[in-house]
């Protein structure tokens, strides 16, 4: 028996919006520690890892570990039927073939339940090694989204370079080229507006912009984003989910033959 009550139901709606275009089907894993998902996009270039910790739920009951295969397009259709202020409860029976999403309006005067069929998904769970990153950049998520969107009108790939001067995003295409440099700044008024660069050594990596643009659909989840990079390793693009967890996107770099 599984019963997870999330008061801020809009978070789950936003999570689905953030990943449904990248991943079609995925297993949601439920354990004592939380509600999680790990899935790759269909071309196996990117991986998304979601964690909603159990202590972030108002009520969290998970009698035994459960993996529920869901079509994210269908799940998103159902969650779209929840109001933004609704409390969402996810319910499932052990060994059942469906999951129920219950939506309660804040004043409790409207209660809906939507039952969705589960599916069997053969997914490979990948082990993500602990890594010391050469550079970690924390910046406003809207700024990162703006840069990815702007540069994708010029080129298909972006070179992200971190040096002591700042973080540089560069692209080029048929019509020309573009560079955007963000320097470290300290905002006294608002930590969310800060760009903070922690660098052990300079790093420069090339990525396909269309994946980064897809990741920025998570911008509504957090005011800041963190980019963690090491030479010739996937970048981690992380959005914290207020008080409850995170969504991390891993993207394989483009590497010289």
């Amino acid at each position: 028996m599984l019963e997870l009550r999330l008061v801020q139901g809009s978070l789950l709606k936003k999570v689905l919006d953030a990943i449904k275009d990248l991943v079609t089907d995925a297993n949601f894993d439920c354990s004592e520690s939380g509600f999680s998902l790990q899935a790759m996009d269909s071309s196996h270039v990117a991986l998304v890892a979601l964690l909603l910790r159990s202590d972030g739920f108002e009520h969290y009951r998970c009698d035994r570990n459960l993996s529920m295969g869901m079509n994210l397009t269908n799940m998103s259709k159902m969650l779209k039927c929840a109001g933004n202020d609704d409390i969402i409860t996810i319910k499932a029976d052990d060994g059942g073939d469906s999951v129920t999403f219950m939506f309660e309006s804040p004043s409790q005067d409207k209660v809906s339940d939507f039952e969705m069929k589960l599916m069997d998904i053969d997914s490979e769970h990948l082990g993500i090694p602990e890594t010391e990153y050469h550079a970690i950049v924390k910046m406003p998520s809207a700024e990162f989204a703006r840069i990815c969107r702007d540069l994708s009108t010029i080129g298909d790939t972006v070179v992200i370079s971190v040096s002591k001067d700042g973080v540089k995003f560069s692209t080029s295409g048929d019509i020309g080229s573009a560079n955007v440099v963000c320097r470290q700044n300290n905002s006294v008024d608002n930590k969310d507006n800060e760009t903070v660069i922690e660098m052990n050594e300079p790093v420069s990596l090339t990525f396909a912009l269309r994946y980064l643009n897809s990741f920025t659909k998570a911008t509504t989840l957090s005011n800041t984003v963190t980019l963690s990079m090491s030479k010739e390793l996937p970048v981690v693009v992380e959005y914290k989910i207020a008080e409850i967890g995170h969504i991390r996107f891993y993207l394989a770099p483009k590497i010289e033959d």
């Binding site: 790759m40 990117a46 993500i128």
Partner: peptide, 14 residues
């Protein structure tokens, strides 16, 4: 030119 690698070449199956 640069080639797109697979994420599976970095993270191993569990």
């Amino acid at each position: 030119g640069k080639q797109q690698g697979s994420i599976m070449s970095f993270f191993k199956k569990q």
